[in-house]
Amino acid sequence: MELKLTLNGRAVTAQIEADTLLLDFVRSHGCTSVKRGCETTNCGLCTVLLDGKPVLSCATLAARAAGRTVTTLEGLQEEAADFVGFIADQGADQCGFCNPGFVMNTIALLRENPDPTDDDIRAYLAGNLCRCSGYEGQLRGIRAYLDSRKG
């Protein structure tokens, strides 16, 4: 079937199968930041924004994204660059495999709630698993970024 959608601001038309997953679709369109970490919607590595909302692309049919806007980290480099340096300062990037999903959902969080508490951050990012960092460094990084914005 034919799929038309907007991927990172670009109109894309492609032939897909009815059961093509959005994850595989975006990866095949050069958005390799989007990762598969599980098959059970538990890890958050495949997070993309669908019409601005964070969703799991591993469990979204590409077909459902027809006519809608899909954003991956490839399309949010500048917005991400604003704060990922603070994560890097903590060394909390670690292996990096979960980073894109975590960064995407952090962007979603900060758009929704520009001044979150630590508990807000933990709750919003609960669906983003990380096995390396122990999470605390990610939190310190986000906190440092938020503090830097307040001057």
Binding site: T32, S33, L73, A80, D93, P100, V103
Partner: peptide, 21 residues
Amino acid sequence: KSVRKKDSLQLLLGKGVFLED
């Protein structure tokens, strides 16, 4: 010194550096 990891921005910005990428 707490130097940033050399690959940190590549990783955090989701560049294609893993096997499947």
